[in-house]
């Protein structure tokens, strides 16, 4: 069987399109590359959707945490503390458990016990908490002068927030937020490994790498392939975030732009 045929059969296996049975013999390099690559679809799906939805929630959380009213501040603080203070491993366990119990009472929760939605919700909450802490830190380090000049120009309330505070916060937070994005994509590897069951052998990249390691009894081929895919993914994420960073700092002179990138090297 040629490699092209393998790609046709297994390229979209992770989402259930193509050959139903996984390869049971040969385990050629082509099969391993194709299937593990097809599993990456899930890693990208989880990472991208959790990141985008988490971005909005994180903004709201960061605002709530810096609010004066304790009714807003306290819940936000606790939410962030609990999700930043516990391992994702444990969060997945409780997430799955909670959705199972909810499902028994309200049938509407049925899709939540499947990874595509349940794990996404857990990852969304997790990344929201981490990003909110980053945004909150940035919010506190906005130069006083910026706000004062905004006041001097007659900005106040919503316009001041929209035009001055929020863009500055984003600019300051961006390098750390880039790191959070990378961590999030890496964390997606945990979904099928510990938390959620894999249906009909539709799993993420680690699931298939595990499958091959189990079948060939040789961990030295599938896991490095997996590692390679993730390095590629990391590079792509870095370049996308780099472009966004350039856009955010487009008003700054060339020299100053580079400086900001290096200063806030805070991860998670």
């Amino acid at each position: 069987m040629s490699c092209w045929m393998t790609i046709q059969d297994y390229g979209l296996r992770a989402v259930g399109i193509g050959e139903r049975l996984l390869p049971r013999e040969d385990f050629t390099l082509c099969q391993q590359f194709t299937l593990i690559g097809s599993g990456m679809i899930w890693n990208i799906y989880f990472g991208a959707f959790a990141l985008i939805s988490g971005f909005f929630f994180a903004n709201a959380l960061a605002m709530a945490k810096s609010a004066r009213s304790p009714w807003l501040r306290k819940p936000a603080e606790w939410f962030i503390f609990i999700f930043r203070g516990s391992p994702l491993f444990v969060q997945f366990f409780f997430g799955y458990f909670l959705f199972l119990s909810l499902k028994q009472v309200f049938p509407i929760f049925t899709p939540f016990t499947a990874a595509w939605l349940g794990a996404l919700v857990v990852l969304f909450l997790n990344t929201s908490a981490y990003s909110a802490e980053i945004f909150f830190g940035a919010l506190r380090s906005i130069p006083k002068g910026d706000v004062e000049s905004a006041d001097a120009y007659g900005f106040s309330g919503w316009p001041r927030f929209k035009k001055i505070i929020w863009p500055t916060m984003l600019r300051l937070a961006w390098p750390a937020y880039t790191n959070e994005a990378i961590f999030l994509f890496h964390a997606t590897a945990l979904v099928f490994f510990s938390g959620f069951p894999a249906w009909q052998q539709k799993g993420d990249a680690l699931y298939y790498a595990n499958y091959f390691a189990d079948k060939t009894f040789n961990p030295f081929v599938p896991y490095p392939i997996l590692a390679m895919y993730f390095i590629l993914l990391t590079l792509v994420v870095l370049s996308i975030f780099g472009l966004a960073n350039r856009f955010l700092n487009r008003h700054l002179p060339q020299e100053a732009r580079r400086k900001i990138k290096l200063k806030m090297n805070v991860i998670r």
Binding site: L21, L22, R24, F193, S194, P197, A198, W199, Q200, Q201, N210, Y211, D214
Partner: peptide, 24 residues
């Protein structure tokens, strides 16, 4: 049908018409 990942039972169910769901 549920089975433990990486067992002979898991690969058996995968080859039948049943829907396989795997746990660690």
């Amino acid at each position: 049908i549920a089975a433990q990942t990486g067992t002979i039972q898991a690969s058996f169910v995968a080859s039948t018409g049943a829907t396989l769901v795997e746990f660690a």
